[in-house]
């Protein structure tokens, strides 16, 4: 048994030790940390001080949450052995719902109704997400349709609703507090980053510390055996897609806040990138494995590359290419090691 005493003791020191241990005892995370350090070193040498400036770091923190929250939404379905292709269209439809209420009902003058309608708008967006999530979950868990096909269908349908309702137009001009979510800072930390932290931590706790989370991992590897162990796997799967959809709605809110507008086809190129980010972060595309810590590391790596390329005046498309290359490289490492005869 290899339970170190520090792992189990309490207090802030122990928490730090636990965090470091948690990050490094996992092979994937170790690899990602090495990669991150190497990237920071190389970019530091190439770009110099500017790379470490407050502005650069802050701009990274502004950009990461969007992809971050969407990747969370993708990740939990991947862990459960599924996939949610509908996250982007869900985010957009929810953003449009919120934007519609905000642009049509929120009175100009600040006051009780002003705040009230904004809150109603956000809840309306979440409600739309809940409906989509429950539909996905129901079709996947209770009808037994494969997740990729189900969400391919709902993705197209949800986007179709968004286009049909808006005729492809942009809704813009949102109230001040909403814009603040996307562009404001609290003590120098971008609000969007705080939103990301506020959704990522409960998801981490859910996956790591609750019966639902434990069941999600088991289902991801073998749904049937988990059902035979007395777990209502259908309900867990329904819950996973509901949460995924709600996360997509939060991502929609952050996107809408950042652009100060909503549209049926924002951020579509992110769809496959979220899978890339999750898999790079150690999520097994076949299900059953993946932790939030790994995902966060992977998001930081992707963001560091993107920001550095920006500073180096490289095209953002080169960033895409490098992201893809890194994914292949990281996935290939265990196989190459095996071929060379290393035990992992």
């Amino acid at each position: 048994m290899s339970h170190e005493p520090a792992y189990l003791s309490k207090g802030p020191d122990a928490a730090l030790v636990r965090l470091i241990k948690g990050l490094t005892h996992d092979v994937t995370n170790r690899r990602l940390i090495i990669l991150l350090v190497a990237l920071v070193a190389v970019f530091g040498l190439l770009i110099g001080e500017r790379f470490f400036s407050q502005a650069t770091v802050q701009s990274m923190a502004f950009q990461l949450p969007e992809l971050g929250i969407l990747s969370l939404a993708m990740m939990i379905t991947l862990v459960s052995g599924g996939l949610n292709l509908a996250i982007i269209s869900t985010a957009n439809l929810c953003a449009l719902t919120m934007a519609y209420i905000m642009t049509s009902h929120v009175p100009g003058a600040e006051g009780f109704m002003w705040a009230g309608w904004q809150i109603i708008a956000i809840f309306a967006g979440l409600a739309v997400a809940a409906v989509i999530g429950l539909l996905n979950g129901f079709v996947i868990a209770y009808l037994g349709v494969s997740p990729i096909l189900t969400t391919l269908g709902t993705m197209t349908m949800v986007k179709g609703i968004a286009i049909g309702m808006t005729r492809g137009n942009v809704l813009s001009g949102l109230p001040e507090p909403i814009v603040f979510i996307g562009n404001g800072t609290v003590y120098g930390i971008p609000t969007a980053m705080l939103v990301f932290a506020a959704v990522a931590s409960p998801i981490a706790i859910m996956l790591g510390r609750t019966p639902t989370g434990a069941a999600t991992y088991m289902i991801g590897s073998n749904e049937k055996a988990t059902r035979y162990s007395g777990i209502d796997t259908k309900r867990v799967i329904l819950r996973v897609y509901l949460i995924s959809s709600l996360l997509a709605a939060v991502a929609g809110l952050v996107m809408m806040a950042r652009f100060n507008s909503a549209n049926a086809s924002y951020a579509e190129s992110y769809l496959l990138v979220t899978i890339l980010a999750a898999v790079l972060g150690g999520v097994d595309p076949m299900g059953g494995f993946g932790k939030i810590a790994g995902l966060v590391l992977s998001l930081i790596i992707l963001q560091v590359i993107s920001s550095a390329f920006n500073l180096l005046n490289f095209s953002q498309f080169l960033t895409l290419a490098i992201w893809g290359t890194i994914l292949v490289a990281v996935m290939a490492v265990p196989n190459i090691r095996k071929r060379l005869g290393f035990a992992d």
Binding site: L272, L276, F317, L318
Partner: peptide
């Protein structure tokens, strides 16, 4: 699926 997501980004990004 992972390989082709990666190569989609690589091919498209480079192009």
């Amino acid at each position: 699926i992972i390989v082709s997501i990666a190569t989609l980004n690589i091919f498209y990004g480079l192009l």
